[in-house]
Amino acid sequence: MSCWETVQAYAFRSLGYGERLLPRGEISLCEQVTLIGSGMIWNIYFGVLALFFGFFFAVTLAVAKNSHAKWVRKPAEWFIFVFRGSPLFIQFFLAYFALVRLPEEIGTLDISWLTDPFAKAWLGALIVLFLNTAAYAGEIFYGALRSIPKGDLDAADAYGMSGFKRFRRVVYPTMLRLAWPAYTNEAIFLFHATTLVYFSGFPAFRQQGDALYYASYFADRTFNPFVPYPIVAMFFIILTLIVITVFSLINRHLNRHLPAERRARVRYRPNLIR
């Protein structure tokens, strides 16, 4: 079939729509690009939702870690330490065992109706990515909280601000402005880390996998990994450029009140290891 027919057949196959069977025999470049692009839908799903929910949890963790109350500070410190101190790859396997296998091993009642959703990547892997990025971002926001100029806090006190009003009007915006460049790099790396879902214990449902799932399939079928894996890299480079653009616009908005020479710029600094 033509390339356009291939796009129509496979563009949304990762979501369960379109051609049921994967390509066999002579596999064209168009089929590889289309199916790997279809798998990117799941990578974007994991990244966007983990970032969205992880952002609010990260702010909570940062505020808790900055608290003077020990019973609030210590749980946040240990949560951040555990998830930053252990590899994300291992966290996937531990989560799969804790959420799925362990209840089956020790439970006397059938609770598969409760554990089955967690056995799927759309929920189980998403929870792991959410907790992981919340820990990293929480440490970033905590560092920004500690770096807020004392003059800003004194000015808030001089205006009679206290409690939540002080946090909402002074502390929170300044924290975001200081943390945003580093948080941008965390967001980029989170999208890259979604490729680890393929290697985790969470299986693809009815061959509806992510980009790396289809790239691995094509590499096995064609015995040529030098075509599908560069296609995956190309898609992630495009995704990275989109993330940088969006986060740069947000960064410009956060720093709109500052002179141009004092505005922090978003710079991509890749992490070599997580």
Rank of each mutant, 00 (worst) to 15 (best):
L129W: 07
F89V: 15
Y229H: 07
F81Y: 14
E105Q: 14
F141T: 08
F56V: 05
A119S: 12
F141R: 02
G163Y: 04
L51S: 10
A62I: 06
L212P: 01
S86I: 13
L51V: 04
S200R: 05
K120D: 04
F141P: 06
G25A: 03
P23F: 01
F226D: 10
A211Y: 08
R267I: 10
A134Q: 09
P87I: 05
I80A: 09
I242V: 15
E139I: 09
Y213P: 05
G124A: 02
R263L: 01
G138R: 07
R252M: 13
V72S: 01
R262C: 05
Y213I: 08
F56M: 08
I41M: 13
F236E: 10
E31I: 10
A187L: 10
E104A: 14
D152P: 00
I140G: 01
G54C: 04
D116Y: 08
S162A: 10
T115S: 12
F164N: 03
V48S: 07
F164W: 14
N271C: 06
T108W: 04
Q207R: 13
G54Q: 03
W78P: 03
F118W: 07
F118Y: 06
L61G: 03
L29D: 01
R166H: 02
P23L: 11
F218Y: 11
M175V: 03
K165L: 12
R265E: 12
